[in-house]
Design a protein around this nucleic acid. Structure first.
Lengths: 233, 233
DNA sequence: CGTCAGGTTGATTGAGGTCAACCAGCGTGG
DNA sequence: CCACGCTGGTTGACCTCAATCAACCTGACG
């Protein structure tokens, strides 16, 4: 029975968050056969590029990535930060070309669902189809939250960003009150619609309020309640 | 052969934009059997409500709708304005509850794809499955564009909003240089992240520059080129 | 040790929010 | 038919938050 010696869906520790969520053992087995599990990239490398033809859906296994769009003015926008268990690439389905670039923030590993297999997998395993839709819907929800949080003041933006990140890390079994944030101040700003100076000042402010402590890119949340409360006013 | 006397996918004038896009005649026939085509609502009525359990996907047939999310502060955010041929409701798939309310801006008519039929349709007609994914992806793309355009100055926001609307109307065969915008200044502001006063001032500015003319909610685009150029700086 | 990217801090400015007054159109009821 | 109130819209004065510009600091690395 031990057909798969590599780490794959059926022995992956992310099965509760990633595509296999809610699938039977048999279904996960079938899924595993279609998924390539050997994606690896170093920090700064591209998983896919804005404008590239759509060739695959990606499941992030370890590390983190950013989705970056370059607009008509040449300005970079970080649309989202992706964590292990999240599925990237749905943005490319509509126009058959990716709408943004996915770039590794860390050394990352990931699984690949080739576009040409998508239809048959969906057809063969209806529950995978359902999960793909759910992840797609999750992307819509996250983007909508992003739209909303982009309209609030700088301190609330940063509070939402940090607590949101902590929650997502927690859901994946990582430490959530102390984590390494693999983004520069510039990048945090590009994500939240702020300048790097404002990000720096807000982080300082949170530190003097003893809500967090910051050591370069290591963030420690000291008072999660009060940090969350910033958004609620 | 004339099995369907009601307006349905196989005799709908939106087939090139809506779900039937790219389907064969037979496939459209099968799809028609699963879709309820008799949705009707008056201005201000809810198609679905934020928090409601996910029960259906909606295809807007005529009129316009807004997607509204009410945030933790009680503030309304208009996530998008929907036009005929667009598919609403994917936001509810992930959590099995709608993430926002869909509200008629006009007298509208729409088609309904009941959630309980979704999986079997997708399975029976793979090309419908593909189209559903594409529309889902389109939603992601539009949300991402929204995130980006929310970061630019007020005049660029309004320019993007008006030209984007004109383009979408044009693609649906409507007049695109003169249209009725069924939103108050307040609502335009809630969509673009501006106050109603700023919206009013920007509309005025565009009028004095003779880019548009405004009569209450009737917008006439006088100089599309220059209007577009505002975004490009 | 010099260089350079990333980060902090301060001074100044400006776009857009806020507050407030006022106006236009419109349905209602005396 | 007009007075009334009400919603939506416009306009002006003022203020605030975060952008901008600039100087300087820090740690990593060749």
């Amino acid at each position: 029975m031990n057909k798969h010696f590599q780490v794959s869906c059926n022995n992956c520790n992310l099965d509760a968050i990633c595509l296999p969520r809610g699938l039977s053992a048999d279904e996960i087995d079938s899924l595993s056969l279609e998924v390539k599990t050997n994606g690896m990239l170093d920090k700064g490398e591209y998983i896919y590029r804005q404008g590239d033809p759509f060739t695959r859906i990606i499941a992030l296994k370890s590390g983190a990535a950013k989705l970056v769009n370059i607009d008509g003015h040449g300005n970079e926008h970080i649309l989202s930060v992706s964590l292990p268990g999240e599925i990237l690439g749905f943005d490319g389905l509509y126009q058959e070309h990716y709408n943004c670039s996915a770039i590794a923030l860390d050394k990352i590993s990931f699984c690949i669902l080739p576009a040409e297999n998508l239809e048959q997998i969906s057809h063969k395993i209806p529950s995978v189809n359902r999960e793909l839709f759910k992840h797609c819907s999750d992307n819509i929800n996250k983007a909508q939250q992003q739209i909303i949080s982009n309209k609030c003041p700088a301190d609330e933006k940063l509070s939402l960003f940090l607590t949101g990140l902590a929650d997502r890390l927690h859901a994946r079994g990582f430490a959530s009150n102390e984590f390494y944030l693999p983004l520069t101040r510039q990048e945090i700003g590009e994500h939240l619609g702020l300048t790097l100076e404002t990000v720096s000042r807000m982080l300082k402010q949170f530190q003097t309020q003893e809500l967090i402590s910051v050591n370069r890119k290591l963030i420690k949340i000291l008072n999660a309640e009060k940090l969350r409360a910033i958004y609620r006013n």
